[in-house]
């Protein structure tokens, strides 16, 4: 079962990062957080998501058909984290 978990681990981390960024941004805007601080927090969330996303990629590097699928999925998940949340770097926070 561990290898099956590894297959989805990357995207589970993507989901967590996605929800965290969305929640922090909504909450930050609602409580009137200062824009620079909010942007910093959001970038931090993305960075944590990327670092965490590298773990399944590293664990999946050993072969087997399922391992290769897991590696592709983990790499895709990391790219997705960076791409989907790239707005935090350049768009207005609220």
């Amino acid at each position: 079962m561990r290898r099956l978990v590894l297959l989805i681990a990357g995207f589970v981390i993507w989901s967590a990062a996605f929800l965290a960024v969305y929640a922090v941004q909504a909450t930050g805007c609602a409580i009137g957080m200062e824009a620079g601080l909010l942007r910093g927090l959001l970038i931090l969330c993305v960075a944590v998501g990327l670092v965490a996303g590298a773990i399944p990629l590293w664990l999946a590097r050993r072969g087997g058909v399922l391992g290769q699928s897991a590696a592709i999925a983990a790499a895709a998940a990391m790219a997705s984290t960076l791409l989907t949340l790239s707005g935090v770097f350049w768009l207005g926070p609220c």
């Binding site: 297959l7 989805i8 995207f11 589970v12 993507w14 989901s15 996605f18 058909v65 399922l66 290769q68 699928s69 897991a70 592709i72 999925a73 895709a76 998940a77 997705s80 989907t84």
Partner: peptide
């Protein structure tokens, strides 16, 4: 086959975003 398995997983998750 391998790429498709990864693509299905990716689609399954991305579709929730």
């Amino acid at each position: 086959y391998r790429a498709i398995v990864a693509a299905i997983v990716a689609m399954g998750f991305l579709s929730f975003g």
